[in-house]
C-alpha cells in the first residue's frame, strides 16, 4: 500500500495541478491565447502529433550529429593536449573563451559562414560549439586522472610513452569521457534548439520553429504542445544517457 502510494504520489500531484489549472481557466474565462487549459493543449497534441514528432526528430538528429562531431573533435584535441603540456597551455584559454561565449552571440556569424540557405549546417555547428567543451574538459581531466601510484609503477617498469598512454591514461579517462558525453548530449539538444531560434530552421522544421511559428499565430496551445514534446524528448535523452553511463561504468570496472 505504502509503495503504491509512493509510486503514485507524483502522478496524483500532477493530476491535481492540471485539474486546478483547467478549472481556473474555465472559471476565470482566461483567453485561450493567454493561457490555454490543459485539455486544449492535449487536443493540440492529439491533432499535431505527426508534425510534432517529425520536428522533434529534426531537432534531435541535428543535436546527435553535433554530438558526434563534437566528440571526435574534442577527443582528438584533448589527446594532442594530453600528449604535450605546451599545447595545453596554448589551447586552454581559447577553449574557455569558446565555452563562456553565449551561443546566441556567435549564432549570426555562424549563420553567415554556413550560408544563409543552410540553416541546418549553422544549427549543427552551433550545437557542436556547445557540446564541445564538456567532452574536451572531461577528456583532458581524464587523461591526467590516472592513479599517481600506478604512474610510479609505469616509471618503475620503464614503460614507453605509448604504453603509458594506451595502457594507463586512456583507460583511466573512460569514466570522465562517459560523464563528458552525458553532459554534452544534453547541451547539444539545448544548443540545437537555441540555434534554431536564432538561425531559423531552413527546410527541416525543428521544434523551435514550431514554437516560434505558433507564437507568431498566437496559437498558445500549440506552443505548449511543442514545449511539452521538447521537454519529454530532453527527459528521455537524459534517461538514456544516464543508463548508458551506468552501463559503460559497469563494463569498465567489470561490475
Amino acid at each position: 500500500m505504502t509503495r503504491l502510494t509512493r509510486a503514485l504520489a507524483p502522478f496524483v500531484l500532477i493530476a491535481v495541478l492540471l485539474a486546478g489549472w483547467e478549472i481556473a481557466c474555465r472559471a476565470l474565462s482566461v483567453p485561450l491565447y493567454f493561457l490555454p487549459p490543459p485539455l486544449a493543449i492535449a487536443q493540440a497534441l492529439a491533432a499535431d502529433w505527426k508534425p510534432l514528432l517529425l520536428s522533434a526528430w529534426n531537432t534531435l538528429s541535428m543535436a546527435l550529429i553535433a554530438l558526434v562531431v563534437a566528440s571526435v573533435l574534442a577527443q582528438a584535441l584533448a589527446l594532442a593536449v594530453g600528449l604535450s603540456p605546451i599545447m595545453e597551455r596554448a589551447v586552454r584559454p581559447l577553449a574557455v573563451v569558446l565555452q563562456v561565449t553565449p551561443v546566441v552571440a556567435i549564432a549570426p556569424l555562424v549563420v553567415i559562414w554556413a550560408g544563409l540557405d543552410h540553416a541546418g549546417r549553422a544549427i549543427v555547428a552551433l550545437a557542436v560549439v556547445v557540446a564541445f567543451f564538456p567532452i574536451f574538459s572531461g577528456a583532458v581531466t581524464g587523461l591526467k586522472a590516472a592513479d599517481p601510484d600506478l604512474e610510479l609503477l609505469f616509471d618503475l617498469y620503464g614503460a614507453s610513452r605509448l604504453q603509458r598512454l594506451t595502457r594507463l591514461r586512456l583507460p583511466s579517462a573512460v569514466p570522465y569521457l562517459l560523464e563528458g558525453h552525458k553532459v554534452a548530449a544534453g547541451l547539444a539538444l539545448i544548443g540545437a534548439v537555441v540555434a534554431e531560434f536564432v538561425a531559423g530552421s531552413g527546410e527541416a522544421q525543428g521544434l523551435a520553429w514550431r514554437i516560434l511559428e505558433s507564437s507568431h499565430r498566437m496559437q498558445t496551445a500549440e506552443m505548449f504542445a511543442a514545449v511539452l514534446v521538447l521537454g519529454a524528448m530532453g527527459a528521455a535523452l537524459h534517461a538514456i544517457l544516464e543508463a548508458a553511463e551506468r552501463a559503460g561504468l559497469a563494463w569498465w570496472r567489470g561490475r
Binding site: 610510479l152 594507463l168 573512460v174 569498465w252 570496472r253
Partner: peptide
C-alpha cells in the same frame, strides 16, 4: 624489472 613496489593501497587498474 628487478625492483618491485607495493603501495599502501592495492593500486590496481580497475579495468
Amino acid at each position: 624489472g628487478e625492483t618491485a613496489v607495493v603501495f599502501q593501497a592495492p593500486t590496481l587498474a580497475p579495468w
